Simulated assay, not measured.
Amino acid sequence: MAFALPVWLAVQEKLLARDEEDWPAPNCFDEFDDEALEKTFHLTRACLAFIRDAVRGRMKKYIPKKPALSLDVMLMVALNYYAQGRSSDDVLQRVGLSQCDCPAVISTVSGVIAGMSDQFISFPLLQEAKANVASKIESMCGIPDVLGVLAPAHFKIKTNEKDACRAFVNTLGYASVVSQVICDSDGNILSVEKLHRWFSIFSDFVLIVLYCVSPKGGKGYHLSKHVLTPVSEPANDNEIRFNKAHAKIHNVMRTTLGYMKRRFRCLKQLGFAQEGSLDKKSNIIKTCCVLHNIAKKFSVPSPPLTDDKDSVALCPVLAMST
Results as ranks from 00 to 15, higher is better:
82 Y>D: 06
80 N>C: 05
44 T>M: 01
69 L>R: 14
25 A>I: 14
15 L>F: 07
18 R>I: 10
43 L>I: 01
21 E>H: 09
51 I>G: 03
37 L>I: 01
113 I>F: 02
107 S>K: 14
49 A>D: 10
43 L>S: 04
70 S>C: 03
17 A>Y: 08
76 M>S: 08
3 F>W: 09
18 R>V: 12
50 F>H: 13
83 A>M: 09
26 P>F: 04
76 M>V: 02
103 P>V: 04
104 A>R: 04
84 Q>T: 00
38 E>G: 06
111 G>H: 06
13 E>H: 11
6 P>H: 12
33 D>G: 12
77 V>N: 14
56 R>K: 08
97 L>W: 09
81 Y>C: 09
73 V>A: 12
88 S>K: 07
52 R>P: 02
11 V>I: 15
73 V>F: 00
7 V>Y: 07
43 L>Y: 00
29 F>L: 11
86 R>L: 15
40 T>C: 05
32 F>K: 03
47 C>I: 04
116 M>A: 13
34 D>L: 01
27 N>V: 13
84 Q>C: 14
84 Q>G: 01
94 R>I: 00
109 V>Q: 01
81 Y>P: 01
64 P>E: 15
90 D>I: 05
54 A>F: 04
79 L>K: 04
76 M>W: 01
50 F>P: 04
27 N>D: 13
13 E>L: 08
56 R>S: 15
28 C>M: 13
99 Q>I: 09
90 D>K: 06
9 L>E: 10
17 A>N: 10
59 M>N: 02
106 I>K: 08
41 F>T: 02
11 V>T: 15
73 V>E: 09
94 R>M: 14
13 E>P: 05
81 Y>L: 01
75 L>S: 09
73 V>T: 14
5 L>T: 03
109 V>R: 07
43 L>D: 00
47 C>E: 02
99 Q>C: 03
111 G>E: 08
51 I>Y: 02
49 A>I: 10
61 K>A: 15
98 S>H: 12
25 A>V: 13
94 R>Y: 00
70 S>Y: 06
25 A>F: 12
88 S>Y: 03
79 L>D: 04
30 D>R: 11
13 E>G: 01
81 Y>K: 11
40 T>G: 00
99 Q>V: 13
28 C>V: 12
57 G>H: 07
92 L>G: 00
11 V>M: 15
68 A>W: 04
65 K>N: 15
38 E>R: 07
31 E>G: 04
